[in-house]
């Protein structure tokens, strides 16, 4: 009932979808578009595993109705690498041992990307604030913080 048409641009590709008002963005991304990199972790906005970028800003796809995302540009973890080349954040997460079980990694990288897009040279405190909404239960965060720092250095070298 009450189905509506929405248009979503996900990772640069446009999708026209029919959704019901009660459908959550996370379930549309995962079940309809097959983008399984967006994870369900808590369902109440605490863990950040479902983080996606909406018009460049990190939001929680499990706290968002698909309808209210209509017309926006969504980036998921699958849309970060360009032409098969990993984003510097992805490389840094690998190089610094910032990935353990990996379940938080997609949301974590997206939060970090939004930060670096806005602030290419963040302070340690700014990095911590930026990822406070992404729970990692494995790493104790240290290697993650280092990876984000490494990526920020790499990106600023590149832009020089």
């Amino acid at each position: 009932m009450n189905e509506r048409q929405i248009v979503l641009e996900v990772n640069g590709k446009e999708y026209k979808l029919t959704v019901k008002p009660n459908e959550l963005l996370i379930n549309v991304l995962r079940e309809r578009l097959g983008l399984m990199g967006t994870k369900y972790g808590c369902g109440v906005g605490e863990c950040g595993a479902c983080t996606v970028l909406m018009d460049g800003n990190p939001v929680l796809s499990c706290q968002m109705l698909a309808l209210s995302a209509s017309g926006s540009k969504i980036t998921t973890i699958e849309g970060i690498a360009q032409n098969g080349r990993l984003h510097p954040l992805q490389e840094a997460f690998l190089d610094e041992g910032a990935v353990q079980c990996g379940f938080c990694t997609p949301g974590m990288i997206l939060s970090a990307k939004a930060l670096l897009d806005k602030k290419p040279n963040p302070t340690d405190m700014e990095i911590k604030e930026a990822i406070r909404g992404n729970i990692c239960r494995c790493t104790g965060y240290i290697n993650i913080l280092r990876a984000i720092k490494t990526a920020s250095l790499k990106l600023s070298e590149r832009s020089r």
Binding site: T76, L86, Q90, G97, V99
Partner: peptide, 13 residues
């Protein structure tokens, strides 16, 4: 880099 890492940072795991 861990062997399973590529899949994990790209959302493909």
């Amino acid at each position: 880099p861990r062997k399973d890492g590529f899949a994990r940072v790209t959302g493909k795991e």
